[in-house]
Design a protein around this nucleic acid. Sequence first.
RNA 1: GGGAUAUUAGCUCAGUUGGUUUAGAGCACUAGCUCGACAAGCUAGGGGUCACUGGUUCGAGUCCAGUAUGUCCCACCA
Length: 877
Amino acid sequence: MTELSKHYEPQNVEDKWYAHWEKAGYFHSEPDDRPSYSVVIPPPNVTGVLHMGHMLNNTIQDILVRRARQEGKNACWVPGTDHASIATEAKVVKWLRDEKALTKGEIGREKFMEYAYQWTDKYGGVILQQLKKLGASCDWDRTAFTLDEDRSAHVIQAFVDLYRKGKLYRDYRMVNWDPEARTVLSNEEVIYSEEASQLYHIRYQISGSSEHLTIATTRPETILADTGIAVHPEDERYAHLKGKRAIVPLVNREVPIIFDDYVDPEFGTGALKITPAHDSNDYALGKKYDLEVISMLDEQARVTEEAGLLVGQDRFEARKNIRELLEEAEALAKVEDYVNKVGRSERTQSVVEPRLSLQWYVDMQQLAAPALEAVMSDEVDFYPKSQKNLYRHWMENIKDWCISRQLWWGHRIPAYYYKEETFVAANAEEALALAREHFGDEQIDLEDLKQEEDVLDTWFSSWLWPISVFNGFEDKKELDYYYPTSALVTGWDIIFLWVARMVMAGYEWQGERPFDKVYFTGMVRDKQGRKMSKSLGNSPDALKMIDEYGADAVRFGMLSCSPAGGDLLFDMKLVEQGRNFCNKMWNALKLLQMWEATEEKPSDTQALAEQWMQHRLNALSDRLPGMMEQFRLSEAIMQLYNFIWNDFCSWYLEMIKPEEGHQISNQTYEATRRMYAQIMVLLHPFLPFVTEEIWSHLTEGKSDCTQQRLPEVGEIDSHLLEDMEQARLMVSKVREIRNDKGISGKEPLELLLHGESHRLWEGSFRALLMRMGGLGALGYADKRPDQSVSFVSGTDTFYVPIGEFLDIGAEVEKLKKDLDYAQGFLRSVEKKLSNERFVANAPEAVVEKERVKQRDGAERVQKIQAALDALQGGESK
RNA sequence: GGGAUAUUAGCUCAGUUGGUUUAGAGCACUAGCUCGACAAGCUAGGGGUCACUGGUUCGAGUCCAGUAUGUCCCACCA
């Protein structure tokens, strides 16, 4: 037998096993007659790298999938990546600029796409390799990409289908514009947060008067595009200005003063400037009062000719510069510090600019109805349930979805324009046919059609993911088998961006939910509760952590702090704990490997211990499914942890451990290896590598842990389990006395029961108690022996003679404390029982329980009192 | 402004339809241990008025109302 290393060394183990599993094809799934258990991965960005959030949700998915395999299901976990159009395009643009000194405009669409594919081939998909490091048991043969051929075809088909159903339209509206990526964003892609800024008070002269009116704004540069002033109709300060006009400073434009109750008279000066082109509320007001719309910012948010001033400057530069101009013109009343909400692009972080433009939208009203119903009725089951509220709120107030993006990296919208008409079809040829038919003109050519330049929002492909990864529109066989998927594991932060939309797509195209259950993980935060992010630098390097501690340790760390739905505070200590746990199991293995077996029969202690361990293990196997079912994964892993560390290692192994230099009974030896292997199977979904490694040593490489089915849950003898609890308690009590008095474990002690019989005093428990307590004798006594300490366990009094180690004063103190507690307890029970209404109203079983408590409590008090009397009486003689 | 959710040991959290001891776990802490698997360890120990106030009930950590504090979501306040 090979010598095992002092410590468990994951570095030597993990890659070996992953390669083995993959080579054996254990993670590949094909439809068959078993029930399926399918999971689709939330596709990470193709250019992403593994971070804490991925590790958490992929560990959870892996546990579910591995557990499903153990249950005999045909588990299929589909991996893949998302083309992440904005994020990736931004990276490619930067790369082209930095490395090749090229811009999008210079190279054009086709060339850009070539570079983008080049770039994603080179840097993309790294994250999938990193998932293997974590142990993710994905079916890699099924790896999908939202921009690959099959998925793209599906996206186009979905678009065409929606268009034909009349659920798509184009409209000219105020949108969220990202001036850095130069594209529109959906509402969900804008993140609002409070930021420090300034409130500028600007004086506008009233036309034909020397009077001034002061407005307050956070965006002074946009006054160049002002086309109105608004005040509240009942604001007395401004009542006299009805019908007057104001002059915009610097540009000297005369604009109307309007009266609308949209204005809050309490805020600022109670007067508001109106810039219809650059603010969505102002746009609405402008429409209402038919104001002119002057656009003064281009797609990069630079000031245009229309403004007449500061032309070419960036909006922030212009803001800085306009201050001086306003001061010179004596139009700046004051500037005060102010905190307001600023919306930023989720991907580029640049401040979102409201902008008017023509975009494609999905009409969400009809799509939302069945999707809302599905979640509210738990047909799609949310964990934790509280997320249902959030979902409902959003679905009931749903806005149409802006799906066009002014980007190139993505699915180009299959809309073709000819003259004033729009033709939507899967390809140009079909569009051409439609156009010819519409115009009744066979002379129209492909070249006459102009395809939409915009691509689709990334989420327009992601929402099809649970369908498209099973090639849902080609051949229904896969889809029929795997759909609906079993569980989705994701963060609650993308409940609108992704989860809700998948539910809608599921009902729209499959008429059925996309998944049975959704498990929302929390956000990974650092110990101070801050969200982990690159910019804060508080996110540990995931791969480095795996290298250093092992994937199992990291998985343990992630899991043991992850309440469902709640945020989790990540602490390296937990990863250390995971590493220590692996090491503990490794050392238990080493102990087993050291033993030599003989033909001898097991000792009484060994036989009893083995029986107890098996029942204890059965009880654990029995508890686990319920926890798994409810996604109580951290509870499950803690139960396994405690079971292995305490029950198996600290108690069981110590019970059966042969004396130094002795051999162990073959029967005990084999049973122990078998049970330890069973435990490895239970733990395997959580910590796949270390369990596989230990399994291979226990079974001498004859099979793989990852292929094992869950053991059948055997008989659970609760009397046996209770008796052992009693025995453990007594052993601990004896050890406590040793600790307390400084008596070595080698010094044999006597444990005497006050009375004549005790079920643990005879039979197999006798030997076990003596061995575990380091006892020289186990006997009976009818009174307190000289120089002994006593304790009451249950309703029995026990004595342990300790000779000169006895300290009467300390002993009296201790017993008095026990007595106090026992009396207090008894009083509380008696109080309850003396309450007539309790006895009359509570169920009989509850009352009976209280009576038993009272009897035991009284007996206990009496025994402790007797022990105390004996001690004081005995020594005073 | 509206809503959600949380508040239990020093820390992170369980506590499953109100009733087995006057609340559990892990970590941390304290004391003692080189005992042939493990100091990444062993043995034992201390530690909580369950945020606060009131209510419902025979009985409340658990249900209800309010208060405080935290977190998050939504909303057009320049």
